[in-house]
């Protein structure tokens, strides 16, 4: 088993953090993982992405030619990665900011209004966790509970008040969107 996920969006949308949390959850679940960020001269408002590979064997290439799941938090990310998703893979589309769906018949498109759902929770910054919940659902190789634990560990000392609980709710909301009905 080897699966690759690309997280992409504007700098500041938390795509690198979402990837880190999935990588940490995979590690805790006993898998081999790699987390590879785009590390160009990037800034808030520019584009950012990272690739997470999860495997039950040592990982060769940390670059995914055909990711199984892509989380597109903005339009440019969908345009850039849509053609690369593996056949039978999934595209998580942040429909709060992207006004189109998937243009391919061989890929599952999951529309998640991540920003709106986050606002309904009262914390706009958890939009990335809503989308990550959908990624976890579509991917199906790391339990949601492990992702919640990894989220709490990754936020660590920065998490004050009910932040961990809010992020966990966000993960649940997104996860429900990706469940096959």
């Amino acid at each position: 088993m080897e699966r690759a996920v690309v997280f992409a969006g504007f700098g500041g949308q938390g795509v690198l953090l979402a990837g880190k949390i999935l990588a940490r959850a995979g590690m805790k679940a006993g898998l081999e993982v790699t987390w590879l960020p785009s590390y160009g001269p990037e800034m808030r408002g520019g584009t950012a992405n990272c690739t997470v590979v999860l495997s039950d064997e040592p990982i060769g290439s940390p670059i995914a030619e055909s990711p199984d799941v892509v989380m597109a938090m903005n339009g440019p990310s969908l345009d850039r990665f849509e053609s690369r998703v593996a056949k039978g893979g999934a595209l998580i589309i942040n429909s709060s900011l992207i006004d189109r769906g998937v243009g391919r018949a061989d890929v599952r498109g999951i529309l998640v209004p991540a920003n709106e759902l986050a606002r309904e929770l009262g914390e706009p910054r958890v939009a990335n966790m809503v989308a990550l919940g959908a990624v976890v659902g579509a991917l199906g190789v790391v339990p949601l509970a492990a992702v919640k634990e990894a989220m709490a560990a990754e936020l660590g000392a920065k998490a004050r008040g009910n932040i961990v609980a809010l992020n966990a709710e966000a993960l649940d909301l997104g996860h429900a969107k990706a469940e096959v009905t």
Binding site: K20, A23, M27, E32, V33, T34, L36, Y39
Partner: peptide, 10 residues
């Protein structure tokens, strides 16, 4: 190289 420096692994 830069990739190995920047990427995370267990």
């Amino acid at each position: 190289d830069g990739m190995l420096g920047q990427m995370m692994e267990p």
